[in-house]
Structure formats: C-alpha cells, structure tokens
Design a protein around this nucleic acid. Structure first.
Lengths: 321, 321
DNA sequence: TTGTACGCGTTATCAG
DNA sequence: CTGATAACGCGTACAA
C-alpha cells in the first residue's frame, strides 16, 4: 500500500496518502534506487566516457550533461580514456557492471568490439565529438572541417601564405577533419600544403611545444600557425614565449577552441569556439529520449552537427607578402 | 548451489563446479551487480560533491579522485552545488538514493542537517577543501592562511604597502582563512588593512571584474592586488586589460591558485599553487579505508593540511615607496 | 559436500 | 480503494 502512494501509482485515498506521507517524513524515508533498479531494470544512472576531463572543452561538455541529467533525475559516472583503447574497455566494463541505463561516449582510436557488443545488447548510446562507423547511434558533433577552414581562411585573408598547422592525432576524426579544413582553405587560394609546415601535436601540450620549436627553427619561418586544440595551444604559446617571438608582430596565431584564458591573454587570442556546453545538453537529451523510448513526434536527426564560430581577437595581424 | 561456484565461496566439488560452469557458459550468464548490491550493501560507487567542476582546481581534484577510485574498482558520481545549500541537499539526496558507499564533499555555507544525518547514518565521509564543525570525518585541506600570508609577504618584501585583496565569499573557510593570511602579513609590518582595499569577489568572475574596476577608480590606486582564487583572477585580469593597466609596471598581481595559463600569460602570473591532484588522491584513499574498515596500523590524522607553494613568475615588481 | 529457503527494498498483481 | 503476496537475482545460514 505505502508503495503506491510513495511510488505514486495505482489508486489510493487522500486519507491514506496523507497518513503514509506523514509516516514517511517521520522515518525520513528515502527510496532505495538499488532495489528499485532490481525490479525496473533502470538505475537512473548514465555513463560518460571521454578522453580527459581535465581539458576545458570536456569539462564544459560534462557540466552540460550533468546539468541536464540532474533535471531528469539522472546521475552521471564520468570515466577518462586518455585516448587509450584499453583504458576505454576497462571503463566500459565498470560501467556495464553498474548497469547504467545509457552511455555517452567519445570513442578512442582502436578496436571497439566491446562497445559494439554493448550497443547491440540494447544499451542506449550517444556518440559525442566523434562518430563511429559500424555503430547505430546518434552523434553530437561540431563541423570541424568548416571551423578549421574558417580559421585558415581568416589568416589567408590577412595576407598570410606560409601557414603552419599543428595537428592532433592522425586517424582521429576531429584531427583529420580540421586538417581537411586547412587543406581546403589553402586549395581555394591554389596553395598546396607544405609538409614542413604540417606538424603532429598528438593533442598533447609537450608535443605541441616541440612542434612549435621545430617550426621556429625553419630557415623560412611560417608567418602564422593554426593550432588544432586548446591543450596544444598552451604548449605552442609557451614555446613562442620562450623563443621571444612576439604575437602577432612576428607571427600570427589562431587556435581551434576558445578557452577562458583566450580573452585576457596578451595578446588575446583569436580562435574557433565550440558550443561545448550545448553539446553536453544535447547529448543527454538524445540519450534520455532513447532511454525513455518516448520518441518525440518528429524523428530527430541521427547526426547532429553544430556550427563553430570564429572569435576575433588580437593574435592575428595583417601582412603583405 | 550454483551461486557458490560462481561466487567462488563456500564449498563444492570439482564435478559440480564444472557442470555449473558449463551451464553458465551455455546461458551466457553474467552476474547482476544490482542484486548483489542490494544484498551486500556495497555499490562500489562513491559520490563527490563540489562547488563547480568547471573550476580548474576542482577539475584536477576530481581527476585525482577518479584515478585512485578506478584503481580500487570504484566509480564516481560527481555533483555540483554551485555554492548553493539547496542544490547541495538535492544532490545529496540523489546520491543517498543511489546507495553510494561513501561521499567526498566540499560543504557549502548553510544548514547541513541532512549531511549530518547521512554521516550519523554511517555513510563514510571525507571533507575536502573545507572542514565542517559538528561532523566527525577526516578532512583534506590546504593551509590557506599560510599560503595567503606567503603571497602578501612576497608583495611586502618587494616594497608594496598599498595592497588590495579581492576576497571570496565571507563565511566560507577558504575565503576567511586567506583573508586572515592577508591580515597577518600586513600586521607583521604594522600595517592595518584599509577597508577600501578589501573587496568582495564572491568567487565569481564578474564580481571580481567589478571589484577590480572599483579599485582602479580609487583616488590612490593600490600598487598591488592579491586575488583569492583563479576564477576571480580571470575577471580581475580582464578588467586590468580593459583599463590599459600594465602588469607589473603599473600594478603588481599575485593570485591564490596556479592555473595552467599562468605560465604563458603575458606577463606570466605569480601565484600560490595548491596540490589539487594529490588532494583528490588522498581524499579517495581516506574514503576507501573507511569503507573497507581496514584501519591501517597507524591511526591516520583526521585533519590533513597540505602545504601550498609560491610559484614565482613575472607579475610582481619591486617598487620603492 | 549439497540442497534449500529466506531476505534485501521495490514494484506489480490479484483478491477482497 | 485496500491489503496481502509474488517476483527481481544474489548471498547466506541452516539443515540434510
């Protein structure tokens, strides 16, 4: 009986309702989600698997997910893969054991057999930041190619022709797409990318630091650098600072991402802003609608690609070459 | 019976073991952690309640907690309070419903009756960043007073006498302690704090932005500002930049915290570094030992106070006054 | 060594 | 509308 009023189902009289509620308050009743889950097979908990919560892009995404999840009565377990496929699988196993109702994941490179098994097993899945071939799940992404192209086109319009790029991890969609954007922008001006100006940064601060140093040692230095994410931007800027290179007088800089510090850095840095918080919100919305199978009237698109925006600041300068 | 061999406890014969295992494979048996948790009262999940994961201090703490938790087979549910007592209680309820095995919390200001009830209820608890009177639980903190004092003493030793402070939230331990450190450092030079130089920043970017603007409008400007955390530092630096104030030529700046961008900002900024990752590691260690009740031989201290360190960079300049 | 029956806290069903 | 009772899947105590 008490179960009915507390669970708010079935039928009961106003009188018993009040009695039960009074008693519940008296005992400080709090429902046990575990027992509930045993019955309903819903834990009201979702898993989130990203590369590293320490990156401010991901921090913001996670905050978006958490906020929306809290609204819907869901809790979130966040795991970090550090771009390592083994770590990914380990986290996935922990998540599955906890019987999460759904999963939001940014897949690493590598074999995703376990992930695919989970997906086939019926666990609702949402991909974030990257797609994954062979898995039928909605994805929330950003148009990396167009964003990168906009960044490089901006440099070109300022007169730059020797534009270097510090890429992420080859094979990772976001990295490859940003490189394609770079290529496309150059192609429009009939410029072919010079291998010596194309550097690997592995989404790592140290690698980007090294890459920047190498670029500065070139006989003919680039007049501008496009850095493919915020983490690498920090390494790059450190190297520039160390070498005494003035931005933008000696060299122009544009980055993919728009971290908080971009605004008050000296000079403030121009970048491509991603709607990270919104991505988190959307990701959970998609997950939730899958979980509750309450398909909204209009069938929603399976691949949500959001727009980035160019935030103009003071790290790029007009040149004549 | 089958439970015994699969759970690997009690006694059984080799023969039955093989029969059961064969059957298990045939049915693709996989244990149900939910049912298990209902019985054992161990969910292998811990809750973490902080103010805002978006702050890089907290991001790092959380990463420390996650890493150590993963090692011990634990998953973490992170909730944000945004320094709001109601939000704190709401998150706490969600956590309790999920029957977490333990809780790491940075308590907000306000009535913690629910938290105390949880603690008395026997849920292992660890306080992080702040203590909480009336709750018997270990706390992992930093010596905020000494750290702040070191920062201000540094400014004093450089010749500064008009030193402004942008505080956090009055009543919050970290904020109050940092202010005490400020007072103490001044007292050693027989300087009494001037109310006009003491500003409220509420740990908020915007509030700190405003506070900085007010300081700059003073008839006699301060020669240095001590900003009590990283979030507020960003607001302060934006205001300085907007007003065209050069650091450190026109004004010296020192902050509590040592965010990643401090190194490559121009100028790089001097600050008080907290061992945030270590704090996360320690917090989970304490929690885990409480959960497993495996009291280590030596009784560990209840209040762990870590040291901060002054990281010298280029935002403070020597002056003569 | 083996079988079995009970309880964990919910939800859901079925008579009353 | 109400009260009792059977699952959910696993651990465990007790009896065989």
């Amino acid at each position: 009986m008490a179960g009915r009023v507390l669970g708010n189902y079935g039928s009961f009289s106003k009188a018993t309702q009040q009695k039960v509620q009074a008693a519940a308050r008296a005992v400080h009743y709090s429902p046990n989600t575990i027992a509930k889950a045993l019955k309903t097979r819903l834990t009201k908990t979702a898993g989130v698997l990203i590369s590293d919560i320490t990156a401010s892009f991901w921090t913001t995404v996670v905050r978006g997910i958490q906020d929306r999840a809290a609204r819907d009565g869901y809790s979130i377990i966040v795991c970090n893969s550090d771009e390592d496929a083994n770590a990914e699988t380990a986290s996935l196993m922990a998540l599955v054991e906890r019987a999460i109702d759904g999963l939001i994941i940014c897949p690493t490179l590598g074999n995703h057999s376990f992930l695919k098994k989970i997906s086939r097993g019926g666990t609702p899945l949402v991909l974030i930041d990257r797609k994954l071939a062979g898995v039928k799940a909605p994805s929330i992404r950003v148009d990396n190619r167009v964003g990168a192209k906009e960044a490089v086109s901006h440099l070109l319009s300022l007169g730059h022709r020797r534009i270097a790029i510090i890429k992420g991890i080859d094979g990772v969609e976001t990295s490859d797409e940003r490189y394609h954007g770079y290529e496309e922008a150059l192609a429009e001006r009939r410029i072919t990318p010079q291998p010596v100006l194309v550097r690997e940064g592995h989404f790592s601060r140290n690698r980007a630091f090294e890459a920047t140093r190498e670029l500065l040692q070139l006989r003919v230095r680039p007049s501008a650098i496009f850095v493919c994410n915020e983490i690498m931007a920090s390494g790059c800027m450190l190297a520039l600072k160390e070498a005494g290179v003035r931005v933008p007088q000696d060299l122009s800089l544009i980055i993919f991402d728009d971290p908080v510090w971009a605004a008050w850095a000296s000079p403030s840095v121009t970048g491509i802003s991603q709607p990270s918080y919104t991505m988190g919100i959307l990701a959970f919305d998609y997950l939730f609608s899958q979980i509750s199978k309450a398909r909204t009237s209009a069938p929603r698109a399976d691949d949500v690609v959001l727009k980035t925006s160019l935030v103009l600041r003071n790290s790029c300068r007009k040149i004549r070459e």
